[in-house]
Amino acid sequence: MATTEAYLQTVTEQLQAVRDEISKVIVGHEDVVEGVLIALVAGGHVLLEGVPGLGKTTLLRTLGESMHLKYSRIQFTPDLMPADILGSMLMSSSADGLKSLRFEPGPIFAHLVLADEINRATPRTQSALLEAMQERTVTTGTETHRLEDPFLVMATQNPLEMEGTYPLPEAQLDRFVLKIVVAYPQREEMITIVERTMTAEKPRVRQAVDRDQILEIRRRATEVLVAPHVRDYAIDLVLATQPTQPQAHELAKKYIRYGSSPRGAQALVQCGRVRALMRGRLNVSIDDIRALAGPALRHRIILNFDAHAEGRTEDEILNAILAAAKRPAEG
């Protein structure tokens, strides 16, 4: 009994230590750091959207350093081929002169993969990530290679430059458990960023947890309790985004073409468990679900033409849905 509670405290401290290490490099963006950590522990992938220069690449690199995980970065360009990501078969010759084909793993074979500006690659290359993200395997020829846990793809995309980009298809968007919008830092945060730039000494990131500890935290996260009313609340939120459902919100009926898939409810509960764990709880609360509703659902709903014409955003509609969703005790 005491083991569980003690371990809970340990987990909380470890996750907080990771956040502290990241904060040595990344100023502010606590919600972004927390979201990436949640996605990592929950076993999902995260899509970061923000303008260049906000520290997206630095964040993932720092995360890899703090966890001592293998980190790789792929810069997506229109001429990037799937083999550039997954790997390719190379002719190799042995010592006795026999030649054979050998699989050379691509950068996808890492624990933390940064797919930078993922929307610049062609849909063919983008879809090469699908299997890796969902099945955690890579198939080349007749061989299937398993990716090592933990495996996190953190993709970034620039919302400004749409010329020459290929927006991610819905099927691939659904693979990301969270979509986090990276906002500009506040003034105080900006001052800290500039001061750190002026100092010659670079911050050192020490290892807070290792790979096994991360996997143990992930296992413990599955033990976090989800009460029926919390589960129902998450499901109601997802149903409210589906315009064909009777409990759909008015704005959803008006502006949403396709609502969230069941993966949205799964993401809410999975990420809610990790969030509760990070806060030292063994149960998911409705506050966890509400806090994660935006990142978990905003990329799973597809707005219709009217919404684009009227300048409506996914966050605006989700906020309206959250405001209208009553807690069970209120109903």
Binding site: T4, E5, V230, A276, L282
Partner: peptide, 23 residues
Amino acid sequence: SDQISTAWFFSSHEVEPTPASEA
């Protein structure tokens, strides 16, 4: 943070108690 209702549910229903639920 829904701790009381969660604890009440998992203690009042026929759910096998786990170390996590007891904690």
